[in-house]
Design a binder for these strands. Structure first.
Lengths: 324, 324
DNA sequence: ATGAAAGCGCTAACAC
DNA sequence: GTGTTAGCGCTTTCAT
């Protein structure tokens, strides 16, 4: 592909004029415009964004750190974020962390080297590394540091809502299947659930799963649950895991919601594909994505943002796995 | 962030020496190495990949055009591709086309301007635009042009297998729910299914859905099916749509697989979460991803690849929605 | 073994 | 209105 100098030469004008024309900065006569455009068309020239980025200190790229794009919650979030950023002319570097600290670290170096204008990190595990960079960072689902913008949905409230919902529907022998300890979000759901149960003096059995989305591991983890038929209500930390539990119950011929009521988390597309349809907590992914994008862009614009902690409200979506 | 010249100055050496040290090109004495590294550590310097790319004509980035990362098939594919490319030091620009030609066009310009080393396009709709670029392109699921590398899974065979499977299990009143006409892949599944049915002189009813993954639209499209209970076998163009159909049947109290047998396509994670578990066609995503990455990298290396058309074998996974 | 200097493609200050 | 030129951060040739 040719460069600007060549276009300028062929059009018989100076290179600065071509630059002005392309970026619409400063006057260029109609006649010259036509000549330049003709040469651009002939050669299929596309301005080099890298060279421009070096000069302007702005690459128009954003790094998106995300655990796993295979998880419906995160791929929906990624979709919203990509869509919004695209409107503002930003392109995304996709970085799967796989919840692996080393991988996250490597990717952070890559993002730095590519001089991204901002970073959106979700479920980040690094700390010093983010603090030691001047690139604007917005974090979702884990608080990196008090000084770094954090967005999260109200997981604590989600846990409380889940308990109240089951309690109101008569459940008294309740199991909570919680997520891996390292996930801040699921820990808060757990805590909210327990706290609310404490208020009602209801004891809760707890089983911890080791993965959020690896279906094979989820199936294995199911074996940790002893005498599942003694429960009348189960709150599962996400929808996929809840679906696994539902299948397990059906195989044992336990009827949902008559014998056991179930509530998941995330409101992902599978809720409506399951039978019965899964009652769940909706995280309002659109709002999370919108706010996240809005905040990175403001940071990039150099705005000071006073409030570091942003919590997005959640809501319970009742479907068929809990009774009316 | 500081630059190379500054590191050089502070370490009291020439800029070329720093470059040599960082890139491991040419000798640098132990003593000087230590001094340079110390300054790098102190300043948190990370080499500017953009400047390097301008010079070396290699950005170590790849553009990934993908319809929708929300669809399990495509997000799994994206995951494999990202993982493999990462091993080779490439980072991905994520480009959702949303099956929208204009959007694809805009993103192609962006990728060109960022001087990506290669493009992986899936379900591409553009043609001239890809032909008019010198960037290596590998296409998945749609043949852009005879001259451009194409990878696809054996959709025609998939359709044939699906028919044979249902036929062998006694189905004679068969419905095929096909995908949107614009998708090459689902058209081939449709064709394979029909051809095989023709061999057995079985007529097939056809209903076309307008979307591959939008769950709401899928539900609407279900209304197009009249008297569903007259069928004893249904082949659906993908797993998500198949799950929608299953739910619909259950609501009508039609038993699967006793009354109607069902077969999906993609072998996505939901197959095993459904009850009964969904019989489906597996596309071997790992192999597709591996080959795609292998081929782009070879093209980037300047290798001539004779065979333009690569077809990946598929296989049928029997689960519980078809009888033994 | 190391450094000076040219040049990659671009932008913007400054002439004219 | 348009062109010349310096310089963004880097690599690499060519001296030394």
């Amino acid at each position: 592909m040719s460069n600007m100098r060549e276009i300028a030469k062929r059009a018989g004008v100076g290179i600065a004029t071509v630059s002005r024309y392309i970026n619409n900065t400063g006057y260029v006569s109609e006649e010259v415009r036509a000549k330049i455009q003709k040469e651009i068309d002939k050669s299929g020239y596309v301005p080099n964004a890298l060279a421009r980025a070096i000069f302007t200190n702005s690459s128009k790229t954003i790094g998106l750190m995300i655990p796993n794009i295979t998880n419906p919650f995160f791929n929906q979030l990624a979709t919203v974020i990509e869509d919004r950023l695209n409107e503002y002319g930003y392109t995304i570097f996709l970085c799967h962390t796989e919840d692996n600290k080393d991988r996250e670290k490597e990717y952070l170096e890559v993002l730095k080297s590519h001089r991204v204008d901002g970073i959106i990190a979700s479920r980040a595990q690094l700390k010093e590394e983010y603090l030691n960079t001047k690139i604007p960072v917005v974090s979702f689902e884990s608080e990196i540091d008090q000084s770094i913008l954090t967005i999260s949905s109200d997981n604590y409230k989600g846990g409380k809502l889940a308990f109240s919902h089951l309690y109101q529907r008569g459940c008294r022998n309740i199991l909570h299947i919680k997520g891996p300890k390292i996930f801040e979000a699921t820990e808060l759901r757990y805590k909210g659930f327990l706290d609310k149960a404490g208020e009602k003096n209801i004891g809760i059995d707890i089983v911890e799963f080791e993965t959020d989305f690896n279906t094979k591991k989820l199936e294995e983890n199911l074996k940790r649950i002893k005498n599942i038929d003694k429960y009348d209500g189960i709150f599962v930390f996400n929808d996929i895991a809840a679906a696994t539990v539902m299948k397990y119950l059906k195989k044992k011929d336990i009827h949902i919601p008559r014998d056991i009521q179930i509530i998941g988390y995330d409101n992902s597309f599978i809720c409506e594909l399951l039978y019965p349809e899964l009652t769940t907590i909706d995280q309002n992914i659109n709002e999370i994505g919108d706010l996240t994008v809005k905040l990175v862009l403001e940071l990039i614009d150099g705005k000071e943002i006073e409030i570091k902690n942003h919590i997005i409200d959640i809501s319970l979506i009742q479907r068929e796995t809990t009774r009316d």
